[in-house]
């Protein structure tokens, strides 16, 4: 995809205070580009969910945003620990989130299914000890 915007956002493990800042910036950029509010909302929700997952579950990682003429590509990559059972993690209501995450209103086991629902294409690859890569594409039309 030829993109006219490429941005990378590092996301730190356990940084609940800043969680959501990358997604807020992503949403702002899409708005500046004139992306429709429906698509913007889908990207924002999926981005916030994946950003929270990086904070809650990963050892740290990054979010990458590419916007091109044909769509938005949002990729999350982390450095571990990996998801032991992706099928289980994709089930609604299944969560391994900490008490801290739950006290903030998260960890209901809706994150991954919600990302999949909002994205037009969703792909997740994970290897224990290496990390997880989630790729989401959103059509602009």
């Amino acid at each position: 995809m030829s993109s006219f915007i490429h941005e990378e956002y590092p996301v730190a493990k356990g940084d609940y205070t800043r969680a959501g800042e990358a997604s807020a910036d992503i949403k702002r950029r899409l708005k500046q580009l004139g992306v429709s509010s429906n698509v913007m909302r889908k990207v924002a929700v999926a981005s916030y969910e994946v950003e929270l997952n990086l904070v809650i579950h990963s050892l740290g990682g990054k979010l990458m945003l590419d916007v091109g003429t044909d769509g938005v590509l949002l990729v999350s990559e982390d450095v571990g620990p990996g998801i032991p059972d992706i099928a289980m993690a994709m089930r609604e209501g299944y969560s391994t989130a900490s008490e801290e995450a739950r006290s903030l209103g998260f960890g209901a086991g809706m994150g991954l299914p919600n990302m999949k629902r909002n994205a037009d294409d969703f792909d997740i690859q994970s290897e224990m000890g290496k990390g997880t890569r989630i790729s989401m594409r959103f059509n602009l039309a």
Binding site: T17, G20, Y48, G105, A108, G109, M110, P113, N114, R117
Partner: peptide, 23 residues
């Protein structure tokens, strides 16, 4: 439960909550 709000709310609406954190 912000997870539920993110998952199920699909319009520009009103949220009633007892949670007051930045999220």
């Amino acid at each position: 439960l912000m997870s539920d709000v993110l998952a199920f709310v699909n319009e520009k609406t009103v949220l009633i909550t007892g949670l007051t954190n930045p999220h």
